[in-house]
Computed example of a mutant assay.
Amino acid sequence: MKKPKNLGWLIAGAVVLIILFWGVSGYNGLVGQDEAVDNKWANVETQYQRRSDLIPNLVSTVKGYAKHESETLEAVMAARSQATQVKIDPSNCTPQQLSQYQKAQGDVTTALGKLLAITENYPDLKANQNFLELQSQLEGTENRINVARKDFNDAAKEYNVAIRRFPKSILAGMFGFEKKNYFEAEAGAEKAPKIEF
C-alpha cells in the first residue's frame, strides 16, 4: 500500500493550526483576565469615590451641631482631598503606588473614625435623621470597599496564576503580561488595638 505524498504536509499543517489556535485562545484568555483585573480596580475606585462623595454632606451635618470641632472637620476634608489626588493606572501599578493609595485611603478612614467618635458628645446630632442616614450609607460603603478590594485581589490572583503557569507563561512573556499587585493589610493590622478605660 502506497502512502500519500502529502501526508507529511497535512500532519505538519494540522500541528501548526493546533499551535496557532492554542496561541490565539491563550492570548485572548490572558487579555480577558487582564481586563477583569482592571474592571475590579475600577470597582474599588468607584466605592472609594462613593465614600468621598458622602464626606462633604457628613461634615456639613456635623458642623451644624459641633461648631467647635473644626479641627476634626478640617482633618476629614484634608484627608479626603489628599485621597482624591492619588490616582493609579491598574495596568502599570507598582507596589509603591498601591501602598501610597492605600495610605491615603487609610488616612480618610482614620479621620472619619475621629469624626464619628466626636459625635458621641452630641446627642442631638446622633438623633438627626440626616446624620443617621449618612452614617448608614458610610457604613455600607465601607463594606462595599472591603468587598471590592477582595474581588480585586481575587481577580489579580487568578490573572497572576495564569501568567505564571506553563505553557501560558510563554505567551505572557512574549506579549508583556506582567504580574498585578495586591491590596495588602495595612502595617500594624495584625496587632489587636489596645483599649484602655
Rank of each mutant, 00 (worst) to 15 (best):
M1Q: 13
K2H: 14
K5M: 10
W9M: 12
L10F: 15
I11Q: 10
A12S: 14
I19W: 02
L20E: 12
S25F: 13
N28D: 08
G29D: 09
D34C: 02
D34I: 03
E35L: 11
D38H: 14
W41G: 03
A42F: 04
N43K: 15
S52F: 00
D53M: 03
N57D: 03
V59L: 03
V59S: 00
G64T: 07
Y65W: 08
E69R: 01
E71M: 10
S81A: 09
S81V: 01
A83H: 04
Q85D: 07
V86P: 05
V86Q: 09
V86G: 04
I88G: 05
D89H: 07
T94S: 14
Q100D: 15
Q100F: 06
Q100C: 07
Q102P: 03
K103E: 11
V108R: 01
A111G: 01
L112S: 02
K114E: 14
Y122C: 12
P123K: 08
Q129S: 13
Q129R: 09
N130A: 10
L134T: 04
S136Y: 02
L138T: 13
L138M: 12
E139W: 00
E142R: 05
E142A: 07
R144K: 11
I145C: 06
K150N: 12
F152D: 04
A156Q: 08
K157W: 05
E158I: 08
E158R: 08
E158L: 15
N160L: 07
V161M: 10
I163G: 02
R164M: 07
F166C: 08
P167R: 13
P167Q: 09
S169A: 14
S169C: 10
I170Y: 15
F175W: 14
K179R: 15
K179Q: 15
K180E: 08
F183R: 09
E184S: 14
E184D: 10
A185R: 13
E186V: 12
A187I: 13
